[in-house]
Design a binder for these strands. Structure first.
Length: 419
RNA sequence: GUGGGCGUAGCUCAGCUGGUCAGAGUACCAGGUUGUGGCCCUGGUGGUCGCGGGUUCAAAUCCCGUCGCUCACCCCA
């Protein structure tokens, strides 16, 4: 084979489609219950939007974007995440005049040039939710419980949030200072990666998995103890609401997220079976982002959830997507004239809304029946010389094996009565 | 960008101390009823053993290179 799918991309074959349709169905249901409306920003935007929106220093911007020049010499980037595009859409279309919060969602492909591994692809699909224009903690709960209900509806048991607050521009710098100071004292024992994080990405020190760093990590100052009053209040109110709704969470002081724009609330939902990647959902609040992009001060909170990871996790946990296979007929012919009749009948049934298939090749009745069975047909409609003589077809119910002769003129009605 | 593992029929893999080693399961096709499926039985189609080079009388099997895949790190859904 000369051509292969590119690294980190995958084909979704027919067998996997039921998962996709099942999840889409649940997304439509839950978003509508919560009053979120769908928007679809384009898949590519000008590069600067993502550079500013996601953050110049982030790995995504520094090394993971699919950036290229179009024929007009403009720098274009395939979206590496949804949020920046949502912000642009929100500002450009004046959605800020609508009643707040403006609750939006979308589903679509995301592109990041990364080394693939279990549960990670260069093209993956995200379900993304954003609530814009209101900073009350009840909006945080709105978004979190949407995620919770979605996963529960899909069939996951015991969904628990990993929760943290990463503060705001008022209180975070001081905490980072403190953290850096603490780690500097232990700089000789920590791993090389942590050495680098120390000045480049200080918060990420808390995320290190290296054994030797764990004792240092365990003694590190906790951000919750260093939040400003506003952030403290926001966090406790959020916890209060979660308790009120009985949504399980676990406060994770080491949960930090890789995008610069997060403020206050950050959260993830973890799942089994995605390799070392455990986040099925990740998001948080970003109260400064829109302003940073040139808009009016607008708080926001949202999350992204990887559909592929949801599917992997469903398979891991034996959650199968229910699929409703409508009954359908398979036309079987023996002889040329019968084939004509079979083809005509198939088209007539289809035109009247009843699914019908027929065999293209002139194989034995037995082979055609096997074919019918393989396609999951409910009925085999057998047409041969005998049937043609009687102007009727032998209709066999493949579920219970019964068979009866039905006049051609009654066939359509017969099948329409099935449903 | 870094490190480990692997590349044999459409798919999942066995064979890999070099010499019936080109195999199994599954899928596909056909037969087991003269016009009737699902289970079962039998047979068949199907492979440059990733690619290139080297060692050898002889390589899927050893060595080198190369491409690809995969898992993990970084980071992320």
């Amino acid at each position: 084979m000369k051509y292969k799918s590119l690294t980190g991309t995958r084909d979704v074959l027919p067998e996997e489609q039921p998962y996709w349709r099942y999840i889409e169905k649940k997304i439509i249901k839950v978003t509508s219950l919560f009053g979120f409306v769908r928007v679809d920003p384009p898949i590519f935007e000008e590069t600067a939007l993502f550079a500013r929106g996601v953050g110049e220093g982030t790995d995504i911007v520094e090394k993971e974007m699919y950036t290229f020049q179009d024929k007009g010499k403009k720098s274009i980037t395939l979206r590496p995440e949804f949020t920046a595009g949502f912000m642009r859409l929100y500002l450009q279309n004046g959605l800020y005049v609508r009643t707040k919060p403006v609750k939006l969602y979308s589903v679509g492909p995301i592109f990041r040039y990364e080394r693939p591994q279990a549960g990670r692809f260069r093209q993956h699909t995200q379900f993304n939710v954003e609530a814009l224009g209101e900073q009350d903690p009840s909006v945080d709960v709105e978004v979190l419980s949407l995620a919770h209900q979605l996963y529960t509806e899909i069939g996951f048991k015991d969904i628990t949030f990993q929760l943290n607050s990463t503060g705001c521009p008022q209180c975070r710098p001081a905490y980072i200072q403190k953290l850096r100071h603490y780690y500097t004292k232990h700089s000789e024992i920590i791993c090389p990666d942590c050495q680098r994080r120390l000045d480049k990405n200080t918060l990420r020190l808390l995320d290190c998995k290296v054994e030797n760093c764990q004792p240092v990590k365990a003694g590190a100052p906790v951000i919750r103890d260093h939040l400003c009053l506003e952030c403290q209040d926001h966090f406790s109110a959020l916890l209060h609401y979660l308790d009120l709704l009985d949504k399980p969470y676990s406060i994770n002081h080491t949960l930090v997220r890789g995008l610069d724009y997060y403020t206050k609330t950050v959260f993830e939902v973890w799942a089994q079976g995605i390799g070392s990647q455990s986040a099925m959902c990740g998001g948080g609040r970003y109260d400064g982002l829109i302003e940073q992009l040139g808009g009016p001060p607008t708080p926001g909170i949202g999350f992204g959830s990887g559909i592929e990871r949801i599917i992997i996790s469903m398979q891991e946990q034996d959650i199968s997507p229910e699929q409703d296979a409508p009954p359908r007929a398979f036309l079987i012919h023996a002889g040329k004239e019968a084939k004509n009749k079979a083809i005509q009948t198939a088209f007539e049934l289809r035109q009247n809304g009843f699914p019908a298939l027929f065999s293209f090749t002139d194989r034995s009745i037995k082979a055609q029946l096997r074919e019918a069975n393989k396609f999951g047909a409910h009925f085999a409609v057998i047409i041969g010389d005998q049937e043609l003589e009687q102007n009727a077809a032998a209709v066999k119910n493949l579920k219970d094996g019964t068979q009866s002769l039905i006049a051609f003129s009654d066939l359509l009605q017969f099948f329409q009565n099935i449903e």
